[in-house]
């Protein structure tokens, strides 16, 4: 983690309008010389639902990991203007991360998997019980506290993973293609559930995906990225009002946004092919 890159909080009166996290000219080159991310600048405001959309290799996952503090940047800065009492430790505590795979510990029950983030902070099992059950309740899995991950379906495992990310009550939820490996029916369900939770709790979400339809359905803003080198190409605001339900999926506004986003994505991909 690049501690030096974290600035101190600005004037508290403007804090609510300031972005929660701000990337300035962030680049990342891997040791094998691959430029994963080139000069990425991005502001994420509080309560936004931002999707990073792009083909594989465009650095969207790398960007997410850098925001999470997993791995250093080669150059550029990340600041957290929206987080008061700003320290590395503080901001990390307010981040929840959901990986592409459920990433559960197979030897631990659902309860113990969700308890983990609190356990690592030294919260005892009995003290954590209320929070764990509440988090499991949010994703509709209270009855499965004593099951082992192998007994659950793919969608249910992903729900456990989301419950685990929510248990620390994060301000910022980072999701790295969380539903990419699920079937379409389950994905739609989880999309809806995620939106409901987001509306209810008002976190900020950064959502990495390669699906145009998923990104339009969920996001208030889409950041389109291109590969080789990974960079931001375009940004689209999706102004359709929330709550969005199944009707939104079949509406003409939705189709219109999907077409626009698709065009932007194709432009991004052609751009990189001609390089």
């Amino acid at each position: 983690m690049n501690t030096a890159a974290i600035a101190t909080a600005p004037d508290p009166t403007t804090a609510s309008h300031a972005p929660l996290v701000s990337l300035r000219g962030v680049s990342k080159t891997f040791s094998n010389g691959t430029v994963a991310l080139q000069n990425m600048s991005l502001d994420i405001g509080e309560r936004e639902f931002v999707s990073l959309l792009g083909p594989s290799g465009c650095g969207k996952s790398t960007a997410l990991r850098i925001i999470a503090g997993l791995g250093d940047t080669t150059s550029g800065t990340i600041t957290w203007p929206g987080v008061r009492d700003d320290t590395t430790a503080k901001s990390r505590h307010e981040i929840g991360f959901v990986f592409q795979e459920p990433t559960l510990m197979p030897w631990a029950t659902v309860f113990n998997n969700v308890w983990l983030p609190l356990r690592l902070r030294g919260v005892s099992r009995s003290a954590a019980r209320g929070d764990v059950m509440e988090a499991l309740g949010m994703v509709g899995l209270e009855k499965f506290a004593d099951s082992y991950p192998r007994e659950l379906s793919g969608g249910m495992k992903m729900r456990v993973s989301i419950a685990r990310a929510l248990i620390t009550r994060p301000k910022l939820l980072l999701m790295d293609e969380p539903f990419a490996a699920l079937d379409e029916i389950t994905r739609f369900k989880l999309n809806n559930d995620l939106l409901h939770l987001w509306e209810k709790f008002g976190w900020t979400v950064i959502f990495v995906t390669h699906s145009v339809f998923e990104s339009v359905y969920l996001s208030s803003r889409i950041v389109v990225m291109a590969s080789r080198p990974g960079r931001v190409i375009d940004e689209l605001a999706i102004d359709a009002p929330y709550p969005r339900e199944e009707e939104f999926r079949t509406s003409s506004i939705y189709n219109e946004y999907c077409r626009k986003t698709s065009d932007a994505l194709h432009a991004a991909m052609e751009g990189s092919e001609h390089r």
Partner: peptide
């Protein structure tokens, strides 16, 4: 040990000892 789980432990700032006890040893069992 699963690299994503190691990342998760890093994200929640687990100590080396916690990572060993809660993650690496059960994985090695």
């Amino acid at each position: 040990t699963d690299h994503n789980l190691l990342n998760l432990f890093e994200l929640y700032r687990a100590s080396r000892w916690q990572t060993l006890i809660f993650l690496q040893l059960p994985n090695a069992l």
